[in-house]
Amino acid sequence: MDQRNVTRITTIHLLGFQIPQSITFLVFFLLLMMYCVTICGNLLIITLVSYSKTLQSPMYFFLSQLAATDILLATDILPNMIHTVLVKQTIMSLSVCLTQYYFCVIAESSESLLLTVMSWDRYLAICRPLHYSLKINFQVCWTLAILCWILGIFVVLIYMSTISNLQFCGPNIIDHFFCDFVPILQLSCSDNSTIQLEATIFGFILVIFPFFLIFVSYSYIIVTILKIPSITGRQKVFSTCSSHLTVVSIYYGTLVCVYLAPSSGQTQTLNKLLSLLYTVVNPMMNPIIYSLRNKELKKVVRKFIIDFLRICFSRD
């Protein structure tokens, strides 16, 4: 195709979920509540980890970084999604659409790497407790966290340079609730083999390889736990990593369903629902899972609420 004769599209029509008018405000209210719970829950995690002396450990530091990625992802997806529910479609510029996808990649890439680092932290704490304090401290934690964010941004920079060379000639309609990789490529009339190759390579580096490392880490952790003679001791040790294991299972389970499962038998609605799990539900559930399954965090949350209420009533 002669690139000089192609009319480049400048606006995108995002269709979102096509829901009946009768339940529009119900869906709007549910999504708004999910966004509020996501932001408040993850902000609470960050606040507690920052100011509570009992949560000054590498595990909770990485948890606060994970909460930051969840806030970024939810803020990138949900406000525009809520708007789309109300007006039935959203018209945005191509640059805004691509920017939404870029921030989604940063959040997802950083979260995948952080989950891997957290599994390494649990491996050292359970399988190599004598070496834990020597190999991991807050300087190491900050270095690893910054590397996770930098790698996520680095991936986006490569995507930006490749996508900027594509021609987008339509149709300019995306039947999705956010600008994802496949819908964006469907708008292009250029050869997209290069960016598909990049996506495959980065998918292996940022999803498949981290999942393999997490699997290996937990294989050693499970073997170590099984060697503990008492059932109470096993339960106590396993409780320190059960929350992380639950989050990992949900996160990678939804990614596999969306990107690795055969798409030929999936309807567009099913694809949207699966994408909803890792872009909206996961960021909301992560702080809830950690709060419900972690006794130390539950104690700090309870103390925080009691102190907050005491301050409020003392002012009255």
Rank of each mutant, 00 (worst) to 15 (best):
4 R>Q: 10
6 V>D: 06
6 V>Q: 07
12 I>P: 01
26 L>M: 03
39 I>L: 10
46 I>W: 11
50 S>R: 11
51 Y>K: 12
53 K>G: 14
56 Q>R: 09
68 A>H: 05
70 D>G: 12
83 H>S: 11
84 T>V: 14
87 V>Y: 15
87 V>W: 08
90 T>D: 10
90 T>V: 10
92 M>K: 14
93 S>K: 13
96 V>P: 02
98 L>C: 02
103 F>L: 15
109 S>D: 01
109 S>I: 01
117 V>E: 07
120 W>H: 13
121 D>H: 12
123 Y>V: 03
133 S>N: 09
138 F>L: 05
147 L>F: 12
148 C>M: 06
156 V>L: 00
159 Y>I: 02
160 M>H: 11
162 T>S: 09
164 S>A: 03
171 P>L: 04
172 N>S: 08
172 N>I: 07
180 D>V: 07
180 D>K: 07
180 D>W: 14
181 F>P: 03
187 L>A: 02
201 I>R: 00
203 G>T: 00
206 L>S: 00
211 F>W: 04
217 S>K: 03
218 Y>F: 08
223 V>M: 12
224 T>E: 08
230 S>D: 11
234 R>A: 09
238 F>P: 05
243 S>L: 01
253 G>A: 03
261 A>Y: 01
266 Q>V: 09
268 Q>C: 13
277 L>V: 10
280 V>R: 06
283 P>G: 02
284 M>Q: 05
285 M>T: 07
286 N>Y: 15
291 S>P: 04
294 N>F: 03
300 V>I: 04
306 I>C: 08
312 C>I: 14
313 F>P: 06
316 D>N: 15
